[in-house]
Design a protein around this nucleic acid. Structure first.
Lengths: 239, 239
DNA sequence: TAATGTGAAGCTTTTCACAGCC
DNA sequence: GGCTGTGAAAAGCTTCACATTA
């Protein structure tokens, strides 16, 4: 908690507290990090903004601007050192000390999340699996024993949990959320299809499968409408 | 395919093709739809922008502007008719004809997605479960038999699949994506932690658990940095 | 009167384009 | 010569505030 290297993040350029990184940039930094890790694994040492942008699926100007919020870590005429950039982004995102995550709701989705290897490799540690259903308590999943949700507050304290993941049915989500907030958790990732009410100091991100599909559905519809309009327009132009 | 009611979407206001709905609005419309469905279930007939906004977690001006892209369906001094709005949003998002979805990759996550009830209730139909692993082929999940990925093209044609969901490991994702595109699928929801390369006419949305956690991690970090800076600033102000 | 619908203002994000540096 | 870093312009999104209307 008093690691001096952390203070450097806020003032890495030596001119006091850095201007906050835009939300849109933060989301992309996480994607760049994944791409860079893959590049590092296959032995790439240096990468240009053009190359990295193409791998990450953005344009190079945006990538350069995004990286510039972390500081000036590129070399003109050369590009970026992959290992250095991985380190800087990880630090910028606060991934240097494997944050503890509590996963609540061990149904189908909870099982899948518990078994997801990406947690450990990408800066997180599952500290606990919790469920309200006593018949699930005691089950062993991915090396962890499912515990009862009533133990939440104690676990959050002892394991220093800073992120809660809600994978319960929608009806249970707000209650679980309240318990997390009560226990002192200030970041929540919500997979339940429900909007959570939280104090303003708590961050919530949500993943809703049906919403994602509905967004795709909208664009699908526009594709077919466009085709039809073009057809109509074509006929009109002839006349 | 020649349902005349669809043409009305593009020109519902009688003044020719409507200006395209902003992406940010489309994403929220899906959330409003969920909230409205819940309200309808509990018997609410009419709702004001203020009420609906609060349930959906946005402010009322934004909600009204979002809804205005669909047309003028509110009543001044009264609010919105819940059932009418559900219908208009569903139509606006293209949810009127249960789109067929193919789910590829029946591991932990694939199982969870296959068992997710929200598909059917929110405008979609799982047309097929597919996997490359022959030992998984034949397994029965949620009433569907897992089939081999080589059958993809045929299934897409016969079932009119318009959306593909990729739940494979990262290494397999691009190959599966290519097969989907080849088969004529133009919308893809990708759960694999990989950036997919697709032709410009194909829409891809991605869900990456680790990216979501990393975004939360960034904000967590800022919370603790802010606290520390305040502490520091406090000391300095005293001197 | 109560609440919608919407121009206009303000803010954020993206893109451009090129100076600066290795 | 080649590529980064970044002001400035453009585009997109949110919020304001109020005229409008049932």
């Amino acid at each position: 908690m008093t690691d001096p290297s952390d203070a450097a993040i806020a003032s890495a350029d030596g001119r006091g507290e850095r201007r906050s990184i835009p939300d849109a940039t933060v989301a992309r930094l996480a994607v760049y990090l994944r791409a860079l890790t893959a590049l590092a694994e296959q032995g790439t040492v240096t990468v240009s903004s053009e190359e990295l942008a193409s791998v990450a699926g953005v344009n190079s100007a945006k990538l350069r601007k995004d990286l510039s919020y972390l500081g000036s870590y590129g070399v003109r005429g050369v590009g970026y050192d992959v290992a250095l950039l991985v380190e800087r982004i990880a630090r910028g995102l606060g991934l240097t000390r494997g944050r503890a995550v509590a996963l609540i709701g061990i149904g189908n989705l909870g099982h899948a999340l518990a078994g997801y290897g990406g947690f450990a490799t990408r800066g997180f540690r599952i500290a606990a699996l919790l469920d309200a259903d006593t018949s699930r308590v005691g089950e062993l999943i991915a090396g962890l024993t499912v515990r009862h949700i009533d133990e939440l507050a104690e676990i959050v304290r002892s394991e220093q949990v800073s992120i809660g993941v809600i994978a319960t049915p929608a009806q249970a989500a707000q209650d679980v959320c309240d318990r997390l907030v009560e226990a002192g958790v200030t970041s929540i990732l919500n997979f339940a299809p429900a909007v959570l009410a939280v104090p303003e100091y708590v961050d919530v991100r949500k993943v809703d499968l049906a919403v994602e599909l509905q967004i795709l559905s909208f664009h699908e519809q526009r594709k077919s409408l466009r085709t039809r309009s073009r057809r109509r327009a074509g006929l009109e132009e002839v006349g």
